[in-house]
Amino acid sequence: MNKQFNVPKPVYPWETLRSPFAGTLDQEETIWYDQDYQFLSKESMARYRKMRLIDVGPFMVPGAAEKERILHATRFAIYMTVTDDYAELLPIKEIAGFRDRIFEVMMGDDPKPGEIGIFRQMQANRKEWIALGMPDFWLERMAKKYKYNFVTDGIMEESPYKISKEIPPIPLFHLIRANSIGMIPFVDLICPTTGFALPDFIYNHTVIQRIIMLQSIIVALQNDFATIGKELAIESEMFNIIKLLMYHNKMSFDEACREGMRIHDELVDEFVTLSNHLPDFSPYQRETEEFIYYIKQMISGLNNWYYQSGTKRYEPGGFAVPPNGKGETLERVEIKHF
């Protein structure tokens, strides 16, 4: 391998806002970790404290003017990330049990004494959403999206490939990753942020569902470019578009980067086209357009978080290894993003 690989950064054709809350929520993060994440190993906990996950909310919902309308999103981002890291290499039956208990708590069941603290974070999140005006239909939608899209169709479909080291076909990879990246439930956090729960007849419309799927695939590809240094060093990690293109298409690393970015940019073009040609959603046209605007901010804001937040998540020794994982097993290649 070369000593250094050059990797492009995605760019987006809209302006991204900057949140005044970025870098100001460290106290909240410390309290959450100290109270509810002590079930993690000391090493994992030390790594999470360097990841700057607390800034995911400010970067992804930069238009929120009130602290409460950002805190709920950053709380969610942390426990969603821990869910993925904690469960991804567990046996499927154990993931299913964890998933089912998550669903119960997100639907309103109280965490039991002795259960791991992540459930208390999920309960706190539900209370935040109710305080921000979210109705029962939205709370149920969020719980179902977390259970079925993120865990069942995402983590549980991805895990067997990581354990067996089999290589998924690229079309299937896009669908699994769109779920496992967690953006299908995350996008609904726009609703408590703005104070408007998008009605089911709008949310379930074909165009809106396609826009949501596009943002999820786009963010997954964005993640692949940002994290490729880590994933080249993990032998079992093939869920990265660059590695898959190299394998399936017999491409060099540079060729795979160019092709991966072409796929990304093509999806962004479709996303913009659909965003500019929304159906008539009266009497909620303005609210729907605001929802789409916030999706755009989520996409480009997360991209900025990778490169501007100071996260150590994707640096050597920065990733929390799953209970059954081995972490980095190969020598790191230096990555230069441009």
Results as ranks from 00 to 15, higher is better:
268 V>D: 03
330 L>K: 15
4 Q>G: 00
309 S>M: 13
190 I>N: 06
11 V>R: 10
97 G>F: 10
319 F>T: 14
324 N>G: 01
10 P>I: 06
148 Y>G: 00
28 E>A: 11
192 P>I: 09
131 A>V: 06
87 A>W: 03
316 P>R: 06
257 C>V: 12
74 T>H: 09
219 V>M: 15
218 I>E: 08
316 P>I: 08
333 V>G: 11
47 R>H: 07
168 P>G: 02
264 H>T: 11
113 P>W: 08
178 A>V: 05
117 G>L: 04
316 P>K: 08
195 G>T: 09
271 F>G: 01
43 E>N: 14
117 G>P: 02
328 E>M: 09
197 A>K: 00
67 K>F: 00
209 Q>I: 01
131 A>C: 06
238 M>F: 05
167 I>F: 14
314 Y>W: 13
50 K>N: 15
119 F>T: 11
163 I>D: 15
119 F>E: 07
280 D>L: 07
44 S>G: 11
168 P>L: 04
306 Y>G: 05
61 V>Q: 01
259 E>S: 07
268 V>A: 00
186 F>Q: 05
23 G>V: 00
156 M>L: 07
37 Y>N: 12
165 K>R: 15
69 R>V: 07
91 P>Y: 06
46 A>Y: 04
178 A>M: 13
80 M>Y: 14
320 A>I: 13
65 A>G: 02
135 P>K: 05
137 F>K: 02
160 P>A: 05
49 R>K: 15
294 Y>N: 10
326 K>F: 11
132 L>E: 03
62 P>Y: 02
176 I>M: 10
60 M>L: 06
271 F>R: 04
87 A>H: 00
3 K>P: 01
243 K>M: 03
337 H>W: 15
136 D>Y: 01
86 Y>T: 01
182 G>V: 09
249 N>E: 15
335 I>Q: 13
311 T>N: 14
97 G>Q: 15
63 G>E: 13
299 I>D: 03
153 D>L: 14
296 K>S: 10
310 G>L: 13
329 T>W: 10
293 Y>L: 07
292 I>K: 01
12 Y>L: 12
151 V>R: 02
111 P>G: 08
327 G>N: 04
206 T>I: 04
326 K>L: 15
1 M>A: 08
308 Q>K: 10
41 S>R: 11
182 G>E: 09
92 I>F: 04
103 F>Y: 12
153 D>S: 06
42 K>T: 15
272 V>L: 10
255 E>Y: 05
161 Y>K: 10
5 F>T: 07
203 Y>E: 00
202 I>H: 00
123 Q>A: 12
56 V>F: 07
156 M>V: 04
117 G>R: 04
219 V>F: 14
225 F>Q: 07
88 E>F: 02
129 W>H: 13
91 P>E: 07
325 G>H: 03
314 Y>R: 14
226 A>R: 10
207 V>C: 00
19 S>D: 05
12 Y>N: 04
320 A>V: 14
262 R>L: 08
22 A>W: 02
298 M>W: 08
338 F>T: 04
310 G>C: 12
317 G>Y: 09
237 E>M: 06
228 I>D: 15
287 E>S: 00
191 C>S: 08
111 P>W: 05
162 K>D: 14
272 V>D: 12
257 C>R: 11
293 Y>N: 05
191 C>T: 03
6 N>G: 08
3 K>S: 06
139 L>E: 00
221 L>F: 15
278 L>F: 02
9 K>C: 11
183 M>W: 14
